[in-house]
Design a protein around this nucleic acid. Structure first.
Length: 204
DNA sequence: GTTCTAGAAC
DNA sequence: GTTCTAGAAC
């Protein structure tokens, strides 16, 4: 028998995709929110879960319980919520991430998120992960595409909103690969991954 | 968000 | 020839 791969299971997905602008993967976080068994922390306002494809040794997502799609929908009334998100995110990092790496943890949002439901990343800066595979992955965490939660909070306080610049986001994802520690410019992803191992050794 | 893979880059 | 990236997925 000469066949390259198993036959594609077309029928299974068609019913979902056809006539729907919101493919199921975009709603993954809504599903996780309802799956209380996956909650590592929860209170009346927020939930913390593991990122399904962690891009570093420690990578979690903190989501509000309320159905807020993205940063664009925040206004003055959400300042306290965002402060709570940051506080609980920091607490979680302090107690759940080993001391060696906890100093380099960042809390923040993607400039243009792929998935529905507002989510704040809690991610260590080693970027040691088999799931970090391409330029988009890298730039979404190591370029200004990653917006620190504290800066977003300041902007929200100042302007009463935290708008999304989609065009700027798309440009940032296409920027050359740049080491987040020493600003070196590795030629490709394998070389970048080899390069950042050095900084990990420097720290330990 | 991921998977898959054509063809660019080496 | 092999490695690597980048765009389609109905």
């Amino acid at each position: 028998m000469s066949r390259k791969r198993a036959a594609p299971e077309e029928d299974k997905s068609k019913s979902v995709k056809r006539g729907s602008f919101n493919p199921s993967w975009q709603n993954g976080l809504e599903v996780s929110l309802k799956d209380t068994a996956s909650h590592l922390y929860s209170d009346e306002l927020v939930v913390i879960i593991r990122d399904k494809f962690p891009k570093a040794k420690h990578h979690f997502l903190l989501l509000p319980q309320a159905c807020i799609d993205n940063l664009e929908l925040l206004d003055e009334s959400h300042v306290m919520l965002l402060e709570h998100m940051i506080e609980k995110g920091k607490d979680f990092a302090k107690t759940n991430i080993e001391p060696k790496t906890k100093n380099s943890v960042r809390l923040g949002f993607h400039m243009v998120p792929s998935m529905s439901h507002l989510h704040m990343h809690i991610i260590s800066q080693d970027f040691d992960s088999i799931y970090l595979k391409n330029k988009k992955h890298w730039n979404s965490f190591a370029s200004p595409f990653f917006r620190d939660a504290e800066s977003v909070l300041e902007i929200l306080k100042k302007n009463g909103k935290a708008s999304i610049d989609k065009k700027k986001g798309e440009e940032l994802l296409k920027q050359p690969l740049r080491c987040h520690v020493c600003k070196e410019l590795p030629a490709n992803i394998p070389r970048l991954k080899e390069h950042i191992k050095r900084h990990d050794k420097d720290r330990s």
